[in-house]
Structure formats: structure tokens, C-alpha cells
Simulated assay, not measured.
Amino acid sequence: MIDDNVGSVLDPQENVQDDNEVIIPNLQENVQVDDVRGYLCYVENVQDGVTGSSSFSQENVQNGPRWYFSRKELEENSPSRKDNIDWNSENMLRKSYSDFLQEMGRRLVLPQMTIATALVFCHRFFLRQSHAKNDWEIVAIACIFLAGKVESTINWLQDVIMVGRGVKLGVDEKTLHREKLCTKEYEDLILLAEKLVLVTIDFEIDVAHPYRPLSVAIDKLDVSIESKSLLTQVAYHLVNDGLRSWLCLQFKPHQIAAGVMFLAARGLEMKLNPSDWWCWPELDVNEEQLKEMSDHLLELDKQSSTPRFNHNLECETISTNGLRVDDKN
């Protein structure tokens, strides 16, 4: 059961004594009951209205939580940084749980919207909680279980747990011993992790994604139906790639939609009409943001085993004349 009276943001760095810090046990063959009890005691001791003092805490309760930060803020103010986890290491952890969630979603036959919501939940959780004190695998399982309920694609908790264990072990979950791996204590641990996720994200479960503003923007373009179809396909792939990174913590969904449109058109060598499409008020994006997003997405693409772009060319500047990009060899 989720207790809606549990307070606001938890900041383990500031509000919890060392002997009571939130520690979600690592995924093991058997989770110890004492670990679960200790975690339960932590959650039950959370007081109403507790708010962390970190830079990523809630700005103003009346205005709602703030979820978008500059790259500099994300690099310097992460709770994980206080626990000596550097930016590159945090990005590797972010990619690990993102790949984990994507594979869980595939095995559970979840729509991409549900997987995207789980990813945003996880990103926002670790925006305010440290990787050093929270096992990302348990948090990820809790996030995809919660996202299934939010997006009306519900799975039984035991099924979600078994798929998570299967992904973790790299085997088909059907070959695993359900009674051994999916104990009552482990179920309780996931439900408690779900509670902590809800507390950390201020119970803000209504998540917007770039898919809809992207579709609307592409539909407004004065290009052929075939071009729109191809552009949509590539742009959707780029949205999904970006969800595995910090992009949704810096840019709003409609801005990401503009960024992936720009990069997709560049990759397809497609000129979009009107040439000033990115100036549409509903996209609310500028040239500097387009360049920053495209640079980041290109970097992610370079790291992919199946890159979509020719990386002999690098984006240097963005011209306001359509999608012309000044490249260098």
C-alpha cells in the first residue's frame, strides 16, 4: 500500500543520520529479511513535509517541483557527487539502468510510452537520491512496476520481479525458480522502493513525453507524406536514444522534439519547409539548445553498436536557413 501522507523530498545527505541512511540492498540470490526490515524502518520514520536542502530539492510547493536543470547543475550538484561518484561514472550507471528498463519492457511486452515513463521516474529519482545509497536495479524494477500502473499497462508484481531477475542474470525468466527468487520479503522490498520513488518525485506521476509534440510538429511541415513518415521513424528512434541519458532532466519534451527533428533531418539530408520551423512558438527552442541537444545525441550515437550517423562529420554551427549545418572534415 502507498501511504499518500508520506512527506516530500528525501535528502539522505542532509536529513538522515548515518545509521539510518536509505540503503536499498543489492540484488542477490536471496534478499535477507533483516535488510528488508531495516529499509522498512527507514521508510516508516519519514516525517511529513521533510524536504532536502540539495540544489535539486523542490523549489516551491505551490509552483510544483522543478525538473529541468542546466548541464553544469547536473554535473556539479548531483547527490551522487557528494558520495564521490563522478559525472562519467554516473552516466554509466544511468545507461545501465536505462538498458535494463528497456529490456524489461521488451520482455513484458510493454508499449514504449510505459518504458519512457519508467525511465523518467528513474532519472528523476537519481536526480535527488545518490547511487551510492540506492541499488539501481531495485529502483528500476519499482519504477517500471509504477509506470505500468500509471500508463494502464499493469503487470503482476511477481511477473515484473521475475523478468527483472531474468534480465539481471541474462537468462530467460521462465527458467528461474519463482518461489526461490520471488519471496514475500523481496516483494515487500520492491513495494517499499516504489514508495520511496513516489516520495522522491513528489508523487508527480503525470509525465509528458516528446512523442506528441514531435508528431504535431512533423505534421505541420510542408514536405511529402513519404518524407514525414521517414522523418518520424528516425526522430522517434532518437527520442528513445535520448531517454537513456540526462536529456529529459535538462530540456522539456517539446524542446527535445525540436532537437530530434533537427538531427533526424540532418541525418536524412532532408530540407524541411518552412525553413524557420524551429521558431514555432510551441517548440520554444533556440539555436544554442538545438546544437547542444544534437551534439549530445550524436555522442550517444557514436557509443551505439549500430550508429545511425556518419561520424566523419561533426556538427559545428547551426544556420537559421533551414537545416543547413556547417561541417568540418
Results as ranks from 00 to 15, higher is better:
1 M>Y: 14
3 D>L: 11
5 N>M: 15
6 V>F: 09
7 G>T: 07
9 V>A: 14
12 P>K: 08
12 P>Q: 09
18 D>M: 04
21 E>T: 04
26 N>G: 15
27 L>S: 00
34 D>V: 15
36 V>H: 10
40 L>I: 14
46 V>S: 01
47 Q>M: 14
49 G>R: 02
50 V>A: 14
54 S>W: 12
54 S>P: 15
57 S>N: 15
60 N>V: 12
62 Q>G: 13
64 G>T: 11
68 Y>P: 05
71 R>Y: 00
74 L>Q: 00
79 P>M: 04
80 S>H: 04
80 S>D: 08
82 K>I: 14
82 K>A: 15
83 D>F: 11
84 N>Q: 12
88 N>Y: 10
89 S>G: 11
92 M>A: 08
92 M>N: 13
93 L>E: 11
95 K>F: 11
96 S>C: 08
96 S>T: 03
97 Y>A: 03
101 L>N: 05
102 Q>C: 10
105 G>M: 10
110 L>G: 11
111 P>V: 03
116 A>M: 09
121 F>R: 07
121 F>S: 04
121 F>H: 06
124 R>Q: 13
125 F>Q: 02
126 F>M: 06
132 A>C: 02
133 K>I: 01
135 D>A: 02
138 I>C: 00
139 V>F: 01
140 A>C: 00
140 A>E: 01
141 I>R: 06
148 G>W: 06
148 G>F: 05
149 K>N: 09
150 V>Y: 14
151 E>S: 03
157 L>D: 12
160 V>E: 00
161 I>T: 01
161 I>Y: 06
175 T>C: 05
175 T>W: 09
178 R>P: 14
179 E>I: 09
180 K>A: 03
183 T>M: 01
185 E>I: 14
186 Y>L: 03
188 D>E: 15
188 D>N: 15
189 L>A: 13
190 I>K: 09
192 L>W: 12
194 E>V: 10
200 T>F: 02
205 I>T: 11
208 A>L: 07
208 A>W: 07
211 Y>W: 02
213 P>N: 03
216 V>N: 05
216 V>S: 05
219 D>L: 05
220 K>F: 08
220 K>V: 06
223 V>D: 11
223 V>F: 07
224 S>K: 06
226 E>A: 14
228 K>D: 00
230 L>R: 14
232 T>E: 13
234 V>L: 05
237 H>W: 08
239 V>C: 03
242 G>H: 00
245 S>L: 09
247 L>A: 00
248 C>H: 15
249 L>M: 00
250 Q>M: 04
253 P>D: 00
258 A>M: 04
260 V>H: 05
268 L>W: 03
272 L>H: 06
272 L>D: 05
273 N>S: 15
276 D>R: 13
277 W>M: 02
280 W>E: 03
280 W>Q: 01
286 N>S: 04
286 N>V: 06
288 E>G: 10
294 S>E: 03
295 D>R: 12
296 H>P: 15
296 H>A: 13
299 E>T: 06
300 L>C: 06
303 Q>N: 13
303 Q>A: 13
306 T>P: 04
308 R>T: 12
309 F>P: 01
310 N>W: 08
311 H>I: 13
314 E>N: 12
322 G>H: 10
322 G>F: 00
323 L>F: 10
327 D>H: 13
